[in-house]
Nucleic acid binder design. Sequence first.
RNA 1: GGGCGAUUAGCUCAGUGGUAGAGCAGCUCGUUUACACCGAGAAGGUCGGGGGUUCGAAUCCCUCAUCGCCCACCA
Length: 708
Amino acid sequence: MQDFPKRFDSATAEPLIYDKWVASGGFSPSMESQAEARSILMPPPNANGALHLGHAYEIAIQDTLIRYWRMRGYKTLWQPGADHAGFETQYVFDRKLEKEGRNRFSIPRAELYQEIYDFSIANQAVIRQQFERMGASADWSRFRFMLEPDLVKTVYKTFKQLYDDGLIYRAKRPVHWCIKDQTTLSDLEVTDQEQTDKLYYLTYGPVTVATVRPETQFGDVAIAVHPEDERYKDLVGTTVDVKMAHQTVSLPVIADDYVNREFGTGALKITPAHDPNDFEIAQRHNLDLPIVIDQYGKLTDQCGQFSGMKIADARAAVVAELESLGVVEKIEAYPHTVKVCYKCNRLIEPRIIDQWWLSLTKPSQSKQKSLRDLAVGAVASGETRFITERYENQFHSWMESVRDWPLSRQIVWGIQLPVWYAKDGSVVVTEGEEPANASELTRDSDVFDTWFSSCQWPFSTLGNHNDDLETFYPTTAMTPGYELIFFWVARMMMLGIYTQGKSPYKVVMLHGIVRDGKGQKMSKSKGNTVDPLATADQYGADAIRLALLYGTAPGTDPTASEEKIRGMRNFGTKVWNIARYITMSKSADAKSEFIPVTDADHTVIKQLHSTIATVTQALDDYQLHIALESLYQFIWRDVADVYLEKTKDQLQNETTKLTTEGNLVYVLDTILRLLHPFAPFVTEALWSEVMPGQPLLLVSQWPEVTNG
RNA sequence: GGGCGAUUAGCUCAGUGGUAGAGCAGCUCGUUUACACCGAGAAGGUCGGGGGUUCGAAUCCCUCAUCGCCCACCA
């Protein structure tokens, strides 16, 4: 073939190859097949942004496994979809509204919902195209969106089941509240931030208390000391008069083990409505919960002249007043950690409000076990295995101290709770349908935490498509980023085991965060991000995938520099030219058949067999980097540098010419199969050149070691 | 305050008991019809420090140091 170009034109060829794959139907599992089923659920990407290298990395891992399994002959499903990504999307949309000078609180609920819905659907299409550009061989005919009615129905059914089983309850308890975003957040959605505040030592009657939040003093209900603290022994049980910024207040002095004698003065003011620890103490001592800060971060009307002030202003004003009263004894700089909203980084305000909770530690009536214990049991028994093992330790230690999960969020974008309230305070929970007397009831306006539905993704998608649940559940592997181990992995196991009786996946392979060539985290502000789409056009999607997988051990952070991507592009070109050489050297009718004659033949077939064994074993063990490195070395060093050079003589020699041609084709044939899961495009392109008339490489058979 | 991980060639990282590896960068030479997005050759590491186990340790154990991550209600 004289028209065999010197290089693979990835930018032009890759999209065309992708179209061929789609047209072939090869991404869909053959349901008639009797083979063992293998499956991965594509973590539903948030439909609110563009593809980044993190997506590309996840695609590389999953697509490599999927393509490998498909070639091994398993009944293989990669189930794609999109999440509504509740708060994440709402947050993005809120910023968009802000730019337009609008505000979500002034838009009618149904209208706002529809706007976000359209926004989300539009982004979904974009994201999906980008996944396709990376070569994702997902079964798009099964694409599901989290808010499709049957998936929502599944979520409602689970909620009702958990409710009837005694695991879901509504309670007034302290929650993390974001003033900016006006919603509750779970423990996982707040992060620690170090900052230096002031610690105020205030005269509280006969004692001194230390506090960073003097503006909450209007909500104080007691002074707490340690029961064995000699300094305050005589005061416990008495009531003392405290000069506050608005008036003098009588507070009881109570004793509680929680108080640390070493800290501050050993005396603690108790503000139960605005501090989770104080709340616990107040519960133990039957104290009131006066609310003095509202949901917007302003002081309530119980705060005298400070009513209506914002927290920061109130603090300054209260301190000024207290100073004039002569009750500020000392002010110290106080470095400590505070909780902030993981999205907007603003200070979290603890609030005591009614929320719906899912108990993770209480045994259910039906199963006599808690959700936590169900998940822990699946890991302990080996039903679900973590790669790498150290994440298993993290999983267990988190589970040990896990707390109940607040399910309700005060946003519009999401699945609204199937909960109605009657005037008499009674509650109706359904599987989503309106109660008969709905007109007399008020529906809860909250929506579910997005993770509540995400964690049902395995059975909500599979369970609503023919026999998929039976065939593909439990799925084979899940490969999320390690930051999702608690958000998603652990909770998905709980709900999966609870509803299906089996853990949703056999293997959890956690991966790291993509870093730049210097090992730095990528971020827009640092300007070190790599746009996968632009890079795919320049170097090919194969090159990106290879760069992300090469040299990355499971659970560690991959690095992807332009140099590394270019290097992997060069590897693709090397493979391309191996094929070019072989194609130009052989006769048109040369068969793919290995007959070793020369020493070089014997050497290369031995290396080939050993490579097949290594790559196969490594892929079975989820050691993608080992498989890839072994292939890279074999292809470039053993085949290109050594064997091909030897064959230049062998092809000139009439006694070895024919067998050498067959050997070359055989080696190439095998290389293309082995490399296909990692670099699907270039291998498929060469396959159609070298093996014309054959079915697509996509659905070809994985090589096996033969005794030849 | 707990728990975990990392420390290997200039840079980024593989390698978990048996004679030190890759990619990128760099050096010397080479435009021979597979490939200059290349080839040949050379160079480069007492595998963080110290101690121990072993016939043998980058790999197992102890300890120290530095960096990083996760979890945690001390006002």
